[in-house]
Design a binder for these strands. Structure first.
Lengths: 200, 200
DNA sequence: ATGTTGACAGACAGACCTGTCTTGTTCAAG
DNA sequence: CTTGAACAAGACAGGTCTGTCTGTCAACAT
Protein backbone atom coordinates (compact mmCIF):
# COMPACT_ATOMS: atom_id res chain seq x y z
CA UNK A 1 0.00 0.00 0.00
CA UNK A 2 1.47 3.30 -1.07
CA UNK A 3 0.44 6.83 -0.29
CA UNK A 4 0.60 9.91 -2.46
CA UNK A 5 0.79 13.61 -1.78
CA UNK A 6 -3.00 13.73 -2.04
CA UNK A 7 -3.21 11.50 0.99
CA UNK A 8 -1.01 13.92 2.89
CA UNK A 9 -3.25 16.83 1.95
CA UNK A 10 -6.46 14.99 2.84
CA UNK A 11 -9.18 14.90 0.23
CA UNK A 12 -12.09 14.51 2.61
CA UNK A 13 -14.30 11.55 3.34
CA UNK A 14 -16.62 9.84 0.87
CA UNK A 15 -20.26 9.53 1.98
CA UNK A 16 -20.38 5.76 1.71
CA UNK A 17 -17.64 5.26 4.31
CA UNK A 18 -18.61 4.37 7.84
CA UNK A 19 -18.98 7.03 10.51
CA UNK A 20 -15.62 6.53 12.18
CA UNK A 21 -13.71 6.82 8.90
CA UNK A 22 -15.63 9.92 7.88
CA UNK A 23 -14.90 11.60 11.23
CA UNK A 24 -11.22 10.72 11.09
CA UNK A 25 -10.76 11.86 7.49
CA UNK A 26 -12.55 15.14 8.20
CA UNK A 27 -10.42 15.71 11.29
CA UNK A 28 -7.34 14.80 9.26
CA UNK A 29 -8.10 17.59 6.81
CA UNK A 30 -9.28 20.24 9.29
CA UNK A 31 -6.65 19.62 11.96
CA UNK A 32 -3.88 19.97 9.41
CA UNK A 33 -5.35 23.00 7.67
CA UNK A 34 -6.55 25.05 10.64
CA UNK A 35 -4.74 23.60 13.66
CA UNK A 36 -5.91 21.58 16.63
CA UNK A 37 -7.41 24.24 18.87
CA UNK A 38 -8.95 26.18 16.01
CA UNK A 39 -10.88 23.11 14.87
CA UNK A 40 -13.94 22.48 17.04
CA UNK A 41 -15.73 19.20 17.49
CA UNK A 42 -18.93 20.71 16.16
CA UNK A 43 -17.34 21.56 12.85
CA UNK A 44 -15.84 18.12 12.43
CA UNK A 45 -19.22 16.58 13.21
CA UNK A 46 -21.04 18.88 10.79
CA UNK A 47 -18.60 18.41 7.90
CA UNK A 48 -18.42 14.66 8.30
CA UNK A 49 -22.22 14.30 8.37
CA UNK A 50 -22.25 12.36 11.61
CA UNK A 51 -24.31 12.52 14.77
CA UNK A 52 -22.61 13.78 17.89
CA UNK A 53 -23.25 10.55 19.74
CA UNK A 54 -21.78 8.57 16.86
CA UNK A 55 -18.65 10.66 17.19
CA UNK A 56 -18.36 10.06 20.92
CA UNK A 57 -19.01 6.38 20.43
CA UNK A 58 -15.89 6.03 18.31
CA UNK A 59 -13.72 8.65 20.04
CA UNK A 60 -14.24 9.15 23.77
CA UNK A 61 -12.83 12.69 23.65
CA UNK A 62 -11.35 15.25 21.33
CA UNK A 63 -7.91 14.27 22.59
CA UNK A 64 -8.51 10.69 21.45
CA UNK A 65 -9.35 12.00 17.99
CA UNK A 66 -6.19 14.08 17.97
CA UNK A 67 -4.16 11.01 18.89
CA UNK A 68 -5.80 9.04 16.09
CA UNK A 69 -5.11 11.92 13.70
CA UNK A 70 -1.40 11.88 14.53
CA UNK A 71 -1.26 8.10 14.24
CA UNK A 72 -2.81 8.24 10.77
CA UNK A 73 -0.63 11.12 9.70
CA UNK A 74 2.48 9.30 10.87
CA UNK A 75 1.54 6.13 8.98
CA UNK A 76 0.80 7.97 5.74
CA UNK A 77 3.83 10.23 5.89
CA UNK A 78 6.24 7.40 6.58
CA UNK A 79 4.67 5.35 3.78
CA UNK A 80 5.08 8.31 1.43
CA UNK A 81 8.74 8.64 2.49
CA UNK A 82 9.28 4.93 1.99
CA UNK A 83 7.99 5.17 -1.55
CA UNK A 84 10.35 8.04 -2.30
CA UNK A 85 13.39 6.47 -0.63
CA UNK A 86 12.85 3.10 -2.29
CA UNK A 87 12.17 4.49 -5.75
CA UNK A 88 15.87 4.80 -6.50
CA UNK A 89 18.27 2.11 -7.58
CA UNK A 90 20.62 2.44 -4.60
CA UNK A 91 20.25 3.53 -0.98
CA UNK A 92 22.51 6.48 -1.62
CA UNK A 93 20.43 7.61 -4.59
CA UNK A 94 17.38 7.34 -2.37
CA UNK A 95 18.95 9.84 0.01
CA UNK A 96 20.01 12.10 -2.81
CA UNK A 97 16.45 12.05 -4.16
CA UNK A 98 15.00 13.37 -0.90
CA UNK A 99 15.35 17.10 -1.65
CA UNK A 100 13.31 16.75 -4.85
CA UNK A 101 10.74 14.62 -3.07
CA UNK A 102 10.38 17.20 -0.32
CA UNK A 103 10.17 19.96 -2.91
CA UNK A 104 7.22 18.16 -4.50
CA UNK A 105 5.55 18.05 -1.10
CA UNK A 106 6.23 21.74 -0.43
CA UNK A 107 4.54 22.65 -3.72
CA UNK A 108 1.57 20.37 -3.31
CA UNK A 109 -1.77 22.15 -2.76
CA UNK A 110 -2.68 22.67 0.87
CA UNK A 111 0.87 22.28 2.17
CA UNK A 112 1.06 23.88 5.58
CA UNK A 113 4.24 22.48 7.10
CA UNK A 114 4.77 19.41 9.24
CA UNK A 115 1.71 18.35 11.24
CA UNK A 116 3.92 17.23 14.11
CA UNK A 117 5.97 20.40 14.29
CA UNK A 118 2.78 22.44 14.13
CA UNK A 119 1.08 20.32 16.75
CA UNK A 120 4.05 20.51 19.05
CA UNK A 121 4.30 24.25 18.55
CA UNK A 122 0.63 24.62 19.41
CA UNK A 123 0.34 22.29 22.37
CA UNK A 124 3.83 22.60 23.83
CA UNK A 125 4.64 20.13 26.58
CA UNK A 126 1.02 18.95 26.48
CA UNK A 127 1.49 17.75 22.92
CA UNK A 128 0.83 14.07 22.26
CA UNK A 129 3.93 11.91 22.46
CA UNK A 130 3.50 11.05 18.79
CA UNK A 131 4.80 14.48 17.79
CA UNK A 132 8.21 13.52 19.14
CA UNK A 133 7.90 9.82 18.32
CA UNK A 134 7.36 10.64 14.65
CA UNK A 135 10.56 12.65 14.47
CA UNK A 136 12.57 9.92 16.17
CA UNK A 137 11.14 7.35 13.77
CA UNK A 138 12.13 9.59 10.88
CA UNK A 139 15.63 9.98 12.31
CA UNK A 140 15.95 6.21 12.71
CA UNK A 141 14.74 5.60 9.16
CA UNK A 142 17.23 8.05 7.68
CA UNK A 143 20.05 6.61 9.75
CA UNK A 144 19.13 3.15 8.45
CA UNK A 145 19.29 4.46 4.90
CA UNK A 146 22.71 5.98 5.60
CA UNK A 147 23.95 2.65 6.91
CA UNK A 148 22.56 0.85 3.86
CA UNK A 149 24.36 3.35 1.66
CA UNK A 150 27.63 2.52 3.42
CA UNK A 151 28.26 6.11 4.50
CA UNK A 152 30.78 6.97 7.19
CA UNK A 153 29.30 8.04 10.55
CA UNK A 154 25.71 7.26 9.56
CA UNK A 155 24.41 8.65 12.86
CA UNK A 156 25.98 12.05 12.32
CA UNK A 157 25.02 12.17 8.67
CA UNK A 158 21.43 11.28 9.48
CA UNK A 159 21.29 13.96 12.17
CA UNK A 160 22.63 16.53 9.71
CA UNK A 161 20.14 15.56 7.03
CA UNK A 162 17.26 15.57 9.50
CA UNK A 163 18.12 19.05 10.68
CA UNK A 164 18.23 20.23 7.08
CA UNK A 165 14.87 18.59 6.39
CA UNK A 166 13.24 20.29 9.39
CA UNK A 167 14.69 23.61 8.36
CA UNK A 168 13.45 23.18 4.81
CA UNK A 169 9.93 22.33 5.97
CA UNK A 170 9.80 25.47 8.12
CA UNK A 171 11.29 27.69 5.43
CA UNK A 172 8.85 26.36 2.83
CA UNK A 173 5.93 26.82 5.22
CA UNK A 174 6.76 30.40 6.11
CA UNK A 175 8.33 31.77 2.95
CA UNK A 176 7.37 29.41 0.16
CA UNK A 177 8.92 26.40 -1.53
CA UNK A 178 11.46 28.50 -3.43
CA UNK A 179 13.04 29.65 -0.16
CA UNK A 180 13.80 26.04 0.75
CA UNK A 181 14.74 24.42 -2.53
CA UNK A 182 18.25 25.78 -3.14
CA UNK A 183 19.55 25.58 0.43
CA UNK A 184 18.13 22.10 0.94
CA UNK A 185 19.80 20.77 -2.20
CA UNK A 186 23.14 22.37 -1.30
CA UNK A 187 23.14 21.18 2.31
CA UNK A 188 22.28 17.66 1.20
CA UNK A 189 24.99 17.69 -1.46
CA UNK A 190 27.64 18.93 0.98
CA UNK A 191 26.66 16.48 3.71
CA UNK A 192 26.54 13.48 1.39
CA UNK A 193 29.78 14.56 -0.24
CA UNK A 194 31.51 14.72 3.12
CA UNK A 195 30.11 11.30 4.02
CA UNK A 196 31.82 9.54 1.16
CA UNK A 197 29.48 9.77 -1.79
CA UNK A 198 30.35 11.70 -4.92
CA UNK A 199 29.10 15.27 -5.36
CA UNK A 200 25.94 15.70 -7.43
CA UNK B 1 20.72 48.74 24.67
CA UNK B 2 21.44 45.05 24.79
CA UNK B 3 19.20 42.10 25.56
CA UNK B 4 20.04 38.86 27.24
CA UNK B 5 18.54 35.40 27.17
CA UNK B 6 16.48 36.35 30.22
CA UNK B 7 14.73 38.95 28.13
CA UNK B 8 13.89 36.30 25.57
CA UNK B 9 12.46 34.05 28.26
CA UNK B 10 10.41 36.82 29.85
CA UNK B 11 10.80 37.33 33.58
CA UNK B 12 7.40 38.85 34.20
CA UNK B 13 6.39 42.40 34.99
CA UNK B 14 7.40 44.34 38.09
CA UNK B 15 4.52 45.84 40.09
CA UNK B 16 5.75 49.39 39.86
CA UNK B 17 5.56 49.45 36.06
CA UNK B 18 2.57 51.05 34.41
CA UNK B 19 -0.44 49.04 33.33
CA UNK B 20 0.43 48.79 29.66
CA UNK B 21 3.93 47.49 30.35
CA UNK B 22 2.67 44.97 32.87
CA UNK B 23 0.10 43.65 30.41
CA UNK B 24 2.61 43.41 27.60
CA UNK B 25 5.27 41.68 29.71
CA UNK B 26 2.73 39.20 31.04
CA UNK B 27 1.47 38.49 27.53
CA UNK B 28 5.08 38.16 26.38
CA UNK B 29 5.67 35.40 28.90
CA UNK B 30 2.33 33.59 28.57
CA UNK B 31 2.03 33.77 24.77
CA UNK B 32 5.47 32.29 24.36
CA UNK B 33 5.05 29.59 26.98
CA UNK B 34 1.51 28.42 26.28
CA UNK B 35 0.71 29.71 22.80
CA UNK B 36 -1.65 32.38 21.48
CA UNK B 37 -5.00 30.62 21.55
CA UNK B 38 -4.31 28.81 24.81
CA UNK B 39 -3.69 32.11 26.59
CA UNK B 40 -6.93 33.89 27.42
CA UNK B 41 -7.38 37.57 28.04
CA UNK B 42 -8.67 36.89 31.54
CA UNK B 43 -5.48 35.13 32.55
CA UNK B 44 -3.29 37.91 31.22
CA UNK B 45 -5.40 40.45 33.08
CA UNK B 46 -5.30 38.46 36.31
CA UNK B 47 -1.55 37.80 36.24
CA UNK B 48 -0.65 41.35 35.33
CA UNK B 49 -2.84 42.79 38.13
CA UNK B 50 -4.72 45.09 35.80
CA UNK B 51 -8.36 45.94 35.36
CA UNK B 52 -10.12 44.75 32.25
CA UNK B 53 -10.91 48.27 31.15
CA UNK B 54 -7.30 49.26 31.62
CA UNK B 55 -6.34 46.45 29.30
CA UNK B 56 -8.82 47.48 26.62
CA UNK B 57 -7.76 51.10 26.96
CA UNK B 58 -4.21 50.22 25.88
CA UNK B 59 -5.00 47.36 23.50
CA UNK B 60 -8.28 47.57 21.57
CA UNK B 61 -8.39 43.80 21.04
CA UNK B 62 -6.51 40.61 21.73
CA UNK B 63 -5.17 40.73 18.19
CA UNK B 64 -3.61 44.13 18.90
CA UNK B 65 -1.88 42.64 21.94
CA UNK B 66 -0.62 39.74 19.84
CA UNK B 67 0.78 42.19 17.30
CA UNK B 68 2.52 44.14 20.07
CA UNK B 69 3.89 40.87 21.46
CA UNK B 70 5.43 39.95 18.11
CA UNK B 71 6.86 43.44 17.69
CA UNK B 72 8.52 43.28 21.10
CA UNK B 73 9.77 39.76 20.53
CA UNK B 74 11.24 40.76 17.19
CA UNK B 75 13.04 43.75 18.69
CA UNK B 76 14.51 41.77 21.58
CA UNK B 77 15.51 38.78 19.49
CA UNK B 78 17.24 40.87 16.85
CA UNK B 79 19.03 42.87 19.56
CA UNK B 80 20.19 39.63 21.14
CA UNK B 81 21.43 38.40 17.76
CA UNK B 82 23.22 41.69 17.15
CA UNK B 83 25.07 41.33 20.44
CA UNK B 84 26.18 37.83 19.54
CA UNK B 85 27.16 38.66 15.96
CA UNK B 86 29.08 41.77 16.97
CA UNK B 87 30.88 40.17 19.89
CA UNK B 88 33.54 38.70 17.64
CA UNK B 89 36.55 40.40 16.15
CA UNK B 90 35.58 39.82 12.51
CA UNK B 91 32.32 39.38 10.60
CA UNK B 92 33.28 35.84 9.71
CA UNK B 93 33.98 34.98 13.36
CA UNK B 94 30.59 36.43 14.20
CA UNK B 95 28.98 33.96 11.82
CA UNK B 96 31.10 31.12 13.14
CA UNK B 97 30.01 31.99 16.68
CA UNK B 98 26.31 31.63 15.86
CA UNK B 99 25.99 27.89 16.59
CA UNK B 100 27.30 28.37 20.12
CA UNK B 101 25.07 31.39 20.64
CA UNK B 102 22.03 29.43 19.49
CA UNK B 103 23.07 26.52 21.69
CA UNK B 104 23.05 28.85 24.69
CA UNK B 105 19.54 29.91 23.76
CA UNK B 106 18.35 26.32 23.31
CA UNK B 107 19.59 25.48 26.82
CA UNK B 108 18.17 28.57 28.50
CA UNK B 109 15.27 27.92 30.90
CA UNK B 110 11.85 28.20 29.33
CA UNK B 111 13.08 27.72 25.76
CA UNK B 112 10.16 26.63 23.63
CA UNK B 113 11.29 27.24 20.07
CA UNK B 114 10.87 30.29 17.89
CA UNK B 115 7.87 32.46 18.76
CA UNK B 116 7.33 33.28 15.10
CA UNK B 117 7.48 29.71 13.88
CA UNK B 118 5.12 28.69 16.66
CA UNK B 119 2.76 31.55 15.97
CA UNK B 120 2.72 30.82 12.28
CA UNK B 121 2.15 27.13 12.94
CA UNK B 122 -0.77 27.97 15.19
CA UNK B 123 -2.49 30.69 13.17
CA UNK B 124 -1.62 29.57 9.66
CA UNK B 125 -2.52 32.05 6.95
CA UNK B 126 -4.22 34.21 9.57
CA UNK B 127 -0.91 34.72 11.35
CA UNK B 128 0.28 38.32 11.78
CA UNK B 129 2.58 39.48 9.02
CA UNK B 130 5.36 39.90 11.58
CA UNK B 131 5.87 36.13 11.70
CA UNK B 132 7.13 36.25 8.13
CA UNK B 133 8.66 39.72 8.39
CA UNK B 134 10.86 38.59 11.26
CA UNK B 135 12.31 35.74 9.22
CA UNK B 136 13.00 37.98 6.26
CA UNK B 137 14.73 40.49 8.52
CA UNK B 138 16.82 37.68 9.93
CA UNK B 139 17.70 36.49 6.43
CA UNK B 140 18.68 40.01 5.42
CA UNK B 141 20.84 40.45 8.53
CA UNK B 142 22.70 37.20 7.94
CA UNK B 143 23.21 38.03 4.29
CA UNK B 144 24.66 41.39 5.33
CA UNK B 145 27.04 39.60 7.68
CA UNK B 146 28.09 37.26 4.85
CA UNK B 147 28.80 40.24 2.63
CA UNK B 148 30.81 41.92 5.39
CA UNK B 149 32.80 38.73 5.78
CA UNK B 150 33.63 38.80 2.08
CA UNK B 151 32.15 35.38 1.40
CA UNK B 152 31.38 34.19 -2.10
CA UNK B 153 27.67 34.09 -3.00
CA UNK B 154 26.51 35.73 0.23
CA UNK B 155 22.86 35.25 -0.71
CA UNK B 156 23.19 31.51 -1.08
CA UNK B 157 25.35 31.17 2.00
CA UNK B 158 22.89 33.17 4.07
CA UNK B 159 19.98 31.05 2.82
CA UNK B 160 21.88 27.87 3.72
CA UNK B 161 22.71 29.15 7.20
CA UNK B 162 19.16 30.33 7.78
CA UNK B 163 17.76 26.95 6.84
CA UNK B 164 20.19 25.31 9.24
CA UNK B 165 19.20 27.74 11.99
CA UNK B 166 15.50 27.02 11.51
CA UNK B 167 16.15 23.31 11.54
CA UNK B 168 18.22 23.60 14.71
CA UNK B 169 15.51 25.58 16.49
CA UNK B 170 12.91 22.94 15.64
CA UNK B 171 15.17 20.03 16.55
CA UNK B 172 16.07 21.64 19.89
CA UNK B 173 12.42 22.39 20.61
CA UNK B 174 11.20 18.89 19.90
CA UNK B 175 14.09 16.69 20.94
CA UNK B 176 16.33 18.83 23.13
CA UNK B 177 19.41 20.98 22.63
CA UNK B 178 21.72 17.99 22.23
CA UNK B 179 19.85 16.90 19.10
CA UNK B 180 20.65 20.21 17.43
CA UNK B 181 24.16 21.02 18.63
CA UNK B 182 26.29 18.63 16.57
CA UNK B 183 24.44 18.93 13.27
CA UNK B 184 24.21 22.72 13.52
CA UNK B 185 27.96 23.06 14.08
CA UNK B 186 28.78 20.69 11.23
CA UNK B 187 26.41 22.30 8.74
CA UNK B 188 27.76 25.74 9.62
CA UNK B 189 31.36 24.57 9.29
CA UNK B 190 30.73 22.94 5.90
CA UNK B 191 28.81 25.91 4.54
CA UNK B 192 31.35 28.49 5.70
CA UNK B 193 34.17 26.28 4.47
CA UNK B 194 32.61 26.09 1.01
CA UNK B 195 32.10 29.84 1.01
CA UNK B 196 35.78 30.63 1.35
CA UNK B 197 36.57 30.60 5.07
CA UNK B 198 38.86 28.07 6.63
CA UNK B 199 37.41 24.98 8.33
CA UNK B 200 36.93 25.25 12.10
C1' DA C 1 -43.05 -10.13 14.95
C1' DT C 2 -39.63 -8.48 18.02
C1' DG C 3 -35.44 -7.06 19.98
C1' DT C 4 -30.76 -5.23 19.00
C1' DT C 5 -27.52 -2.31 17.00
C1' DG C 6 -25.74 1.62 14.80
C1' DA C 7 -26.68 6.00 13.20
C1' DC C 8 -28.91 10.77 12.53
C1' DA C 9 -30.87 15.02 14.63
C1' DG C 10 -30.79 18.22 17.99
C1' DA C 11 -31.56 20.07 22.80
C1' DC C 12 -28.97 20.92 26.83
C1' DA C 13 -25.47 21.90 30.65
C1' DG C 14 -21.41 23.85 32.23
C1' DA C 15 -17.35 26.02 31.27
C1' DC C 16 -14.63 29.36 28.90
C1' DC C 17 -13.70 33.34 25.79
C1' DT C 18 -13.89 38.16 24.13
C1' DG C 19 -15.45 42.52 24.77
C1' DT C 20 -18.64 46.20 27.17
C1' DC C 21 -20.21 48.52 31.01
C1' DT C 22 -20.72 50.18 36.00
C1' DT C 23 -18.92 51.67 40.26
C1' DG C 24 -15.60 53.36 43.26
C1' DT C 25 -10.69 54.87 44.32
C1' DT C 26 -6.35 57.35 43.81
C1' DC C 27 -3.79 61.11 42.45
C1' DA C 28 -2.20 65.08 40.20
C1' DA C 29 -2.98 69.41 37.74
C1' DG C 30 -5.47 73.56 37.53
C1' DC D 1 -11.03 72.35 46.32
C1' DT D 2 -12.48 70.74 41.98
C1' DT D 3 -12.03 68.31 37.97
C1' DG D 4 -10.51 64.82 35.14
C1' DA D 5 -7.57 60.95 33.89
C1' DA D 6 -5.95 56.50 34.94
C1' DC D 7 -6.86 52.56 37.34
C1' DA D 8 -8.95 48.41 40.19
C1' DA D 9 -12.72 45.19 40.79
C1' DG D 10 -16.19 42.87 38.93
C1' DA D 11 -20.90 42.14 36.76
C1' DC D 12 -22.72 41.24 32.34
C1' DA D 13 -23.82 39.86 27.41
C1' DG D 14 -23.19 37.06 23.56
C1' DG D 15 -20.72 33.64 21.58
C1' DT D 16 -18.17 29.12 21.37
C1' DC D 17 -16.41 24.89 23.15
C1' DT D 18 -16.66 20.06 24.99
C1' DG D 19 -19.39 16.52 26.41
C1' DT D 20 -24.15 14.39 27.83
C1' DC D 21 -28.71 13.42 27.00
C1' DT D 22 -33.25 12.27 24.70
C1' DG D 23 -35.78 10.77 20.49
C1' DT D 24 -36.35 8.76 16.10
C1' DC D 25 -35.33 5.74 12.35
C1' DA D 26 -33.59 1.89 9.44
C1' DA D 27 -31.32 -2.52 8.97
C1' DC D 28 -31.04 -6.95 10.52
C1' DA D 29 -31.01 -11.20 13.17
C1' DT D 30 -33.76 -14.30 15.88
Amino acid sequence: MTFTLDDLAGSGPLPEQDARTRVLETAYRLFYRHGLRATGIDRIIAESGVAKMSFYRHFPSKQALIDAYFDLRHARWMAWLEGRLGGSSSPRDGLAALPDALDDWFRSPGFRGCAFINGHAEAGSDAPAMTVTHKRALAARIEQQCEDAGLACPGDVAADLLLAIEGAIVRAQMDGADAARGPLHRLFARTLSDAGGERA
